[in-house]
Design a protein around this nucleic acid. Structure first.
Lengths: 124, 124
DNA sequence: GTCCGACTTCGAGTGCACTCCAAGTCAAGG
DNA sequence: CCTTGACTTGGAGTGCACTCGAAGTCGGAC
């Protein structure tokens, strides 16, 4: 089991060290990250896997407070899988609606682009 | 040609009156919206069409400052279609990259959902 | 004539998610 | 022993995009 410094964890996850500390103090981690005798954080593989899940939720637009609720459920342990599932399904709905909206707006923009392409380089 | 009050324009566009005023003073409109003798804004069909374009750009994630630049180009009039096109194409790239990222993250979340569905109602 | 409601302006406030700073600690190298 | 560099903390600051509040104006209904 490897264990990484915050700088290494930052590089692995694509987040900054600032953000990793912020996530931890904001209750997004499953538990406090372990410390070396120096007090420096040591990230385990489990930590990294969890951070990856957080990243997935975040970059699909889930607000921090919902990620925190999800983390709390997972932290509680077995027995609340129904709630976790409900939370993820609700998020999924939101994401799909958003994807559909963005896609349709993008199509309209593409139409505009086509018009300009004809103006700028007709017949290109 | 209809001409709408700010409340009607808000309803038509799905924005709030506050946001319409904000867009105007932030330079996102092509020109100052006309006024009734009372000083109240009167939105024309052209205004509404432009606001729709702004909404498309915004809800695909274009920052306000880029919308402002695009508005400035359109305001300048003919001759800079190349620049407008470049701006829209650059935006298109960003949006597509983002769509791809969100889609792939969503797939990973779906996988997690499937796991929970099996746990919660196995064989459902 | 005055009341109401929809508007006006300017500027301040909000919420979100970071992002940064200052001052301090620690282990290792020279 | 002293310096260096990577870390630590609490709290403050930033950027974005709204969002709201206060005070004032205007036209029409009663």
């Amino acid at each position: 089991m490897t264990s990484l410094s915050i700088a290494e964890a930052a590089e692995q996850t694509g987040l900054t060290a600032h953000t990793l500390r912020y996530y931890e103090r904001d209750g997004l981690m499953l538990r406090s990250v372990e410390r070396a005798s120096s007090g420096h954080r040591r990230y385990t593989d489990d930590d990294l896997r969890w951070i990856q899940m957080v990243t997935r939720l975040r970059s699909t637009g889930m607000p921090i407070r919902d990620v925190r609720r999800y983390a709390a459920l997972v932290r509680e342990g077995e027995g609340n899988e129904g709630e976790r599932l409900a939370l993820l399904l609700a998020h999924r709905e939101v994401v799909e609606r958003q994807l559909a909206e963005v896609t349709s707006h993008l199509r309209a923009i593409d139409h505009k682009i086509a018009i300009y392409e004809n103006k700028v380089a007709p017949g290109a």
